[in-house]
């Protein structure tokens, strides 16, 4: 009886690990797409709205939920409350603090942090080019992430269950 309970526990936990891994594969392209969407919003506000960056951040934070929203919320707050610190510092700190909530990988992080260096510090035209560049870069990552999702999502899930089953069989 106890043995059976143990076997069920092992099976459940390995499946959970597998599902979680699979979820992160599914989540990554989705989050990249949401970030890209938020960047379009940012672009519209910069080019047509000409609003202040901290207000734009608040605006986007109100529209986006989850980790992307909290990235902008934090950035907006730092822009407003930190005394004359560069825009890059604020953005970088916001990215770093929301990172644990995201399922993104190193390339996206580099793209995002690199983008912070140009955010807000130049004229409209320049902002537009930088935004376009970031969005293209993110698009490449998104495609790659989607490929990975197709390849690994199901595999992770089955690997979790089957791996658990294997362990159970071996020790039973």
């Amino acid at each position: 009886m106890l043995k059976l309970l143990g076997a069920v526990c092992i099976l459940l936990s390995t499946s959970a690990i597998g599902f979680r891994k699979a979820h992160s594969f599914a989540e990554r392209p989705r989050q990249i797409r949401r970030i890209r969407g938020s960047l379009s919003l940012l672009q519209t506000e910069i080019v047509y709205g000409s609003r202040r960056l901290d207000r734009i951040c608040e605006h986007i934070a109100a529209r986006e939920t989850g980790s992307v929203g909290s990235l902008y919320a934090r950035c907006g707050e730092y822009l407003k409350t930190w005394d004359g610190v560069s825009t890059f510092e604020c953005w970088k700190r916001a990215v770093e603090e929301t990172w644990p909530l995201m399922s993104l990988k190193e390339p996206e992080r580099e793209i995002l942090i690199d983008f912070g260096k140009t955010l807000g510090v130049s004229n409209r035209e320049d902002q537009l080019t930088h935004l376009a560049r970031v969005r293209t870069n993110l698009e490449v990552e998104e495609n790659q992430a989607r490929d990975e999702q197709l390849r690994y999502e199901k595999m992770c899930r089955s690997l979790g269950i089957l791996g658990g089953a294997l362990i159970v069989i071996l020790i039973y």
Binding site: G84, L119, N123
Partner: peptide, 20 residues
Amino acid sequence: CVKMLNLISNHSLYALEEEL
């Protein structure tokens, strides 16, 4: 100087094009 420009522009230099 960079900080001062940040404070003047509210981190939004693009909104100050005309002023610049």
